[in-house]
Design a protein around this nucleic acid. Structure first.
Length: 423
RNA sequence: GGAGGAAUGGCAGAGUGGUCGAAUGCACCAGUCUUGAAAACUGGCGAGGGUCACACCUCCGGGGGUUCGAAUCCCUCUUCCUCCGCCA
């Protein structure tokens, strides 16, 4: 959520930047500012009324104490009207504040200067590419065929137990998955991230804190009996650790990494592009989350990008890095880099990581602040990234590392797997 | 799931209807003293709104109510503790 004060002070620039997202920023901000003015106006009136009745109450108290009950009774009558008035103003204020809040929830984050203008993923900007795309035999298979051939992932079984998009990993497939999780966590902790295990269900407040609610209500599985949501990413529980926190600036940077399953409804997506591991309702992901001083957040973002590159380099997978355009940029992000692995057998790029700086957008919702040099509260910046999302990395490994004699496990994973070939 | 108790500032902990945003201690910050540090002393020290700055307003787990007036009384929800039940 954008800060009202910031909107008031930088209306021009914010309008211009938000327009990159193809929304009618001008009228949106106009409504916000009008409501904000109305809110302050009502607040001022309410404050004056309350001040008046506070004053009267004190006088009445004094009169009672000095035994002048008769005079007190007269004053009491005067408070009735004030009470009614403040009740009315209070109701007004609440409904205005609520309306304002709802409006603010509808405004996405302001894209960073470097974000290219665009309407879809086709306009994303490729900024880096590394690794060699292997030349496979003409009989090379896509990962879902390989999964069947080596009996390491059973999609049909998942359908029986839960439904489409819930695969069952078996034998070396399950082991490879576990190996990847361990490897990622080790890499992340070596880079200074503290490993953490968090709940996989979150409450409504947490959903609002990181911005999944109200924007992406339909994307999350909602357990109505207890009003909890299955997490779509570890970002939600991990970042919400800092909800209502005033950190000490000396604690920065705060770095966490956590493995969780992720649950996404992905309503309405079927077809060839969602075959196999390409898109699932449940998948595993290792996430990195940082809380940063605002001055340092973009340096931190660069550092996270380098970190993910390092992992992909070690896995020896061909990948590229994209700077998301305004049309593809997430609602809450100011700048996002996507990582994609090339799926040789499918002849397409698969997103395997998304690294974002949210600046103060989430912090504002979370009320995540720190004391600056002058002892004043300031919003911190939050960032996160996948390091990494499992299924498509797995798909990439299966497809790119297939040989006539089986799938050759990347060297760094062998100690974690306990085997070097799936055959 | 049942019975009882509790929830106050970063922490600990007073406060049971009136000038309490809240004693006191610890922690923290600044100053004095000191070669420096510690100790001691002095001052400061919650958050949000509002204002050029004051004033002023709101917040004592959340929400609602009683009252001229609520941290204090009532209702309700949440969480924690103790006991019972169930259980990996």
């Amino acid at each position: 959520m954008l800060q009202l004060q910031v909107i008031r002070d930088n209306r021009e620039e914010i309008t211009k930047a938000l327009n990159k997202r193809k929304i009618d920023a001008d009228s949106l901000l106009n409504n916000v500012l009008q409501l904000d003015e109305k809110r302050r106006d009502t607040q001022t009136k309410l404050d004056a009324t309350l001040a008046e009745s506070n004053k009267l109450s004190k006088e009445i108290g004094g009169l009672f104490k000095s035994g002048k009950a008769a005079e007190a009774t007269i004053l009491k009558e005067k408070t009735g009207a004030l009470k009614e008035e403040s009740k009315q103003l209070g109701d007004d204020l609440n409904s205005i504040a609520e309306e304002l809040q709802n409006l603010l929830y509808q405004i996405p984050n302001v894209p960073h200067d470097s974000v290219p203008t665009g309407t879809s993923e086709d306009d994303n900007e490729e900024i880096f590419k590394e690794g060699t795309i292997p030349v496979l035999d003409s009989d090379a298979l896509p990962h879902w065929e390989l999964a069947k051939k080596y009996d390491i992932i059973d999609f049909e079984l998942g359908v029986k137990i839960a439904g489409a998009g819930f695969p069952v990993y078996k034998g070396k497939g399950a082991r490879l998955q576990r190996a990847l999780i361990s490897y990622f966590l080790d890499k992340n902790t070596a880079a200074g991230y503290t490993e953490i295990q968090v709940p996989h269900l979150v409450n409504e407040a947490s959903g609002y804190g990181t911005g999944q609610l109200p924007d992406k209500e339909g994307q999350m599985y909602h357990i109505t009996a207890d009003d909890l949501y299955l997490i779509p990413t570890a970002e939600v529980p991990v970042t919400n650790i800092f909800r209502d926190v005033i950190a000490n600036k000396d604690e920065f940077p705060i770095c966490y990494t956590g493995y969780t399953p992720c649950f996404r409804r992905e309503a309405g997506s079927y077809g060839a592009h969602v075959r196999g591991l390409n898109r699932l309702h449940q998948f595993d992901k290792v996430e990195i989350v940082r809380v940063e001083h605002p001055e340092n957040s973009y340096a931190a973002l660069d550092g996270m990008v380098e970190h993910v590159k390092d992992i992909l380099r070690e896995l020896n997978l061909p990948y590229r890095v994209l700077r998301l355009c305004s049309g593809d940029l997430g609602f809450t992000a100011a700048l996002t880099y996507d990582f994609e692995v090339f799926s040789t057998a499918q002849d397409r790029w698969l997103e395997i990581s998304s690294v974002s700086n949210f600046e103060a957008y989430q912090a504002n919702r979370l009320k995540l602040r720190f004391k600056d040099e002058n002892g004043k509260s300031q919003l911190a910046h939050t960032l996160n990234g996948s390091a990494l999302a499992l299924p498509r990395v797995l798909a990439g490994i299966l497809e790119n590392c297939q040989t006539a004699n089986g799938i050759k496990i990347p060297e760094v994973l062998v100690p974690y797997c306990g085997f070097d070939t799936i055959d």
